[in-house]
Design a protein around this nucleic acid. Structure first.
Length: 350
DNA sequence: GCAAGGAACCGCCAAA
DNA sequence: CTTTTGGCGGTTCCTT
């Protein structure tokens, strides 16, 4: 049998699970990683059978829209036969709706997966779903930094790792959000087919995410974490501290470098000077909030560290060529609008 | 939409 | 000698 990186080359089925209120964007990034890994490996080795097959399962099969304005075609449903399934990905839910995590049918199904699939993976607040399903008893786990304390309080039997991008404990993996989800997926690819492939995929992902577009562009800055060795921690801190002073002198201080040298090295490594990068992060997080249904622009601006609503508007124009209001309208239209062609099990940004 | 002041960026050069 | 770092100053861009 042909093997690469120690793994036999049979097709591994990766299932992304959605449920009412789940954030499809959480699944998008890791699924792209598996897509790219599959394509890259096929190109390089001239395979006939793809190493990964990515599917989305929902409450029922067929075309469905998620609340973040993404639409998809579910090729399987919760409760379906899982024979031959390799990995199951569980996204988070829109914040402020803990009752979403108590869907008995979903939780029972997740429980039934233990020992029958190779990996059960949560992204962001999806960790709460795994917790509620009882999969995290006595295990390490992480979640979005904002919810870490909540997780700790709610489930004392879980060993919460607050500052990790992702954790792995046996067959159970958890991650800290979309950024962590990318790193986590890359780590799984590495686990399966080696570091060379995961690096290749990371590079390809960055190029892809840098293409101009609406949603695709949003994660360019997230993906940058995967390719910087030096500033990973700093960028993580930036994401967690959007309301703090993120001026160049301050960032240089955090990085223990002179402002001049920091600007130079940062630009080289990340492809954008510090201020522009920070602005991009702020816009990106604001977009996610808007897409998630936060409609008070003033509050979003404050939360993301813009000095004012006006500042946020300018930053949007500069990076996305549209105003927050326009972005909001589109997100809303996509949420409530008519479904267009749901592609073969993939997801599409509108 | 404008002017004034400030921040960011980058080329250049010198020191480590 | 090469590479990395840090300071200076001019220009541009941004904020108020």
């Amino acid at each position: 049998m042909l093997t690469i990186g120690g793994s036999a080359l049979n097709t591994k089925r990766i299932i992304g699970v959605t449920y009412p209120g789940s954030v499809l964007l959480d699944l998008a990034a890791p699924m792209e990683v598996f897509h790219f890994a599959s394509d890259t490996l096929c190109d390089d080795a001239g395979l006939t059978a793809p190493p990964y097959k990515v599917e989305i399962w929902a409450a029922q099969r067929g075309p469905t829209a998620s609340m973040s304005g993404l639409e998809f075609n579910a090729t399987g449903a919760i409760g379906d036969d899982i024979t031959g399934v390799d990995t199951v990905l569980v996204p988070g839910a829109k914040s402020g709706h803990p009752e979403i995590y108590r869907d008995r049918r979903l939780l029972d199904w997740l429980q039934s997966l233990v020992g029958r699939v190779r990996r059960i993976v949560s992204v962001g607040s999806g960790t709460f779903v795994l917790a509620e399903a009882g999969l995290l008893h006595g295990r390490k786990a992480t979640t979005h930094w904002r919810d870490a304390d909540l997780l700790k309080r709610g489930y004392s039997h879980i060993s919460v790792v607050k500052d990790a991008l992702f954790t792995k404990d046996g067959a159970i993996y958890t991650s800290a959000g979309v950024a962590g989800g990318i790193d986590q997926a890359l780590a799984m690819v590495e686990e399966d087919y080696g570091r060379a492939l995961s690096l290749k995929v990371a590079r390809r992902l960055v190029i892809y995410l840098r293409r101009p577009g609406e949603h695709t562009q949003l994660s360019a800055f997230l993906a940058s974490q995967a390719r910087t060795v030096r500033f990973g921690e700093l960028i993580d801190w930036i994401y967690r501290s959007l309301r703090a002073d993120l001026s160049v002198p301050r960032l240089a201080e955090m990085a223990a470098m002179s402002p001049r040298n920091f600007t130079r090295v940062f630009s080289e490594e990340l492809g954008a000077p510090p201020a522009e990068f920070v602005r991009g992060v702020r816009v990106e997080v604001a977009c996610r909030m808007l897409a998630d249904g936060h409609e008070a622009l003033g509050a979003v601006a404050r939360e993301c560290g813009f000095a004012s609503e006006e500042q946020m508007r300018r930053a949007f124009q500069a990076t996305l060529k549209q105003s927050p209001r326009e972005f909001l309208e589109r997100a809303r239209a996509a949420r409530h609008g008519v479904l267009a062609s749901a592609s073969e099990g993939g997801w599409a940004a509108r």
